[in-house]
C-alpha cells in the first residue's frame, strides 16, 4: 500500500469521478455525470495549491476524492505515501492522520450535540489514545494555537461565531499533525473581516508546522493570496495551471481571463475597467448551454472559439513564466503567449 518513491506529497494522475444519475423511469438506463475528467495535480510538501472554479466545476469533488469520501472511477491519487485507489471500504487510520480537511460550512461540519472540547479531543483519542488530563492539556494547546480561549471548550458549536467555528475545525484538523490539509472553501461562508483572519491563521500554521494545503475556492482573489500555485477548473476539466501571480496577472486561458474580469474590486476606478473588460468578453460569447460531450467544455462561452474546439479537448501547452494551459489557441506553437491585459494586477496589496 505504501509507495517507496519519494516525490510530491500529493500526486493526482488522470483522476476521473463519475456519478450515476437517478433513473428517471425504471426501464431507462441511468445516465452518468462526469464531475471530474482526467485531471492531474501535484502538491509539494509544505506547499499550497489553489484549486479554483465555479459551482459545478468539480473542484469539491476532487477534494472529496482525495479524502476518499467519494470513490474515483479512474486514475490514481497518491497522497503522503498512500495509494488512495487501493483503499477498500475502510480507509487506513494512518491515512486519516496524514490527510485532514476543513469544510466550507463551519457549523454543519461540527456535530451539534458535542461541545467544542470533545470535538477537538475526538481525533486525539482515536489516533493517539490520549485520555484524561493529558488529553485536556493537548486540547487547550490546540485551541490556543488557533486563537481560541480554553473556556470555548465547554461551548456548543451554535454558541460560537462563524470565524470561531472555523477555528475549531482547523484545531481538529491540526490535532493529528497531518502532512496535508484539504481546505474546501474554508472562508467563503465567513464575513470579509473574518476571512482574512482565518487565511492568516492558516498561513501561521503552515509556517510553524510545514503542512501542505489544497485550497479549494471559487474566489480567485482569496486563492491568489493563499496559494503558491493555482489550478483553474471549468466543468470537470483543469484548463490552466501555474504560479499564482502568473495566473492572475497574465492568464493564458480565455476562461481564466473571464474569471479574472469578474472578480469585483472595491476600487471604483479599477472596477469600471473590470466592467468594461467583463462586457467585452461577454459580448463575444453566448450563455453556456448543456455540457458538450466532446471538445473543450468552455467552447460554448469562448470568444475565441474555433471549429476544432468542439471536437477535441486540447492538449497541454507550456506557458512562459510557469505553468501550462489546455487551449487550442496555443496548440502547436510550442509555447503559449499569455494575455497581457492585466498590468495593474501587478500592483502590490497593502
Amino acid at each position: 500500500m505504501k509507495t517507496t518513491d519519494p516525490g510530491p506529497l500529493l500526486r493526482v494522475r488522470n483522476l476521473t469521478v463519475t456519478f450515476t444519475e437517478r433513473r428517471s423511469t425504471p426501464w431507462r438506463r441511468p445516465g452518468a455525470v462526469t464531475a471530474v475528467n482526467d485531471i492531474d495535480l501535484d502538491i509539494e510538501p509544505g506547499g499550497t495549491l489553489g484549486l479554483v472554479g465555479e459551482s459545478g466545476s468539480g473542484k469539491s469533488t476532487t477534494a472529496r476524492a482525495v479524502l476518499r469520501l467519494v470513490r474515483p472511477s479512474g486514475g490514481s491519487i497518491e497522497a503522503a505515501g498512500f495509494e488512495v485507489g487501493s483503499f477498500g471500504r475502510r480507509v487506513p487510520i494512518a491515512y486519516r492522520r496524514a490527510v485532514q480537511a476543513v469544510f466550507q460550512d463551519p457549523l454543519g461540519s461540527l456535530d451539534p450535540t458535542k461541545v467544542i472540547g470533545d470535538i477537538v479531543a475526538e481525533p486525539l483519542g482515536i489516533h493517539f489514545g490520549l485520555r484524561g488530563r493529558e488529553r485536556d492539556k493537548r486540547v487547550a494547546e490546540l485551541l490556543d494555537q488557533v486563537g481560541l480561549a480554553s473556556h470555548h471548550g465547554g461551548r456548543y458549536p451554535y454558541e460560537l461565531s462563524g470565524g470561531q467555528r472555523q477555528r475549531v475545525n482547523i484545531a481538529r484538523a491540526l490535532a493529528v499533525e497531518p502532512k496535508l490539509i484539504i481546505l474546501d472553501e474554508p472562508v467563503s461562508a465567513l464575513d470579509v473581516s473574518v476571512q482574512s483572519q482565518v487565511v492568516n491563521l492558516l498561513e501561521d500554521v503552515q509556517e510553524r508546522t510545514g503542512v501542505a494545503y489544497l485550497f479549494v475556492a471559487h474566489d480567485l482573489a482569496v486563492v491568489r493570496h493563499a496559494s503558491d500555485r493555482i489550478a483553474v477548473m471549468y466543468r470537470s476539466r483543469i484548463v490552466e495551471e501555474g504560479p499564482a501571480d502568473r495566473i492572475c496577472e497574465r492568464p493564458a486561458h480565455p476562461y481564466t481571463e473571464a474569471l479574472l474580469a469578474a472578480v469585483p474590486d472595491p476600487d471604483p476606478a479599477r472596477q469600471r475597467l473590470q466592467r468594461e473588460r467583463r462586457r467585452e468578453l461577454r459580448a463575444a460569447a453566448p450563455a453556456a448551454g448543456p455540457r458538450p460531450a466532446t471538445g473543450c467544455p468552455f467552447a460554448a462561452r469562448c470568444p475565441h472559439r474555433m471549429p476544432v474546439c468542439a471536437e477535441t479537448f486540447p492538449g497541454w501547452t507550456p506557458v512562459p513564466d510557469g505553468g501550462r494551459v489546455a487551449c487550442h489557441l496555443f496548440g502547436g506553437e510550442g509555447t503559449a503567449r499569455p494575455s497581457d491585459t492585466h498590468p495593474d494586477y501587478q500592483e502590490t496589496s497593502r
Binding site: S193, S196, A221, V222, R224, V263, D265, D267, S349
Partner: peptide
C-alpha cells in the same frame, strides 16, 4: 483593507 483583491500580495492580509 481586509477585502482580498486581485493584486500581488505583500505579507499578511490586513484584518479587523
Amino acid at each position: 483593507a481586509s477585502l482580498p483583491r486581485n493584486v500581488r500580495r505583500a505579507g499578511r492580509l490586513p484584518s479587523i
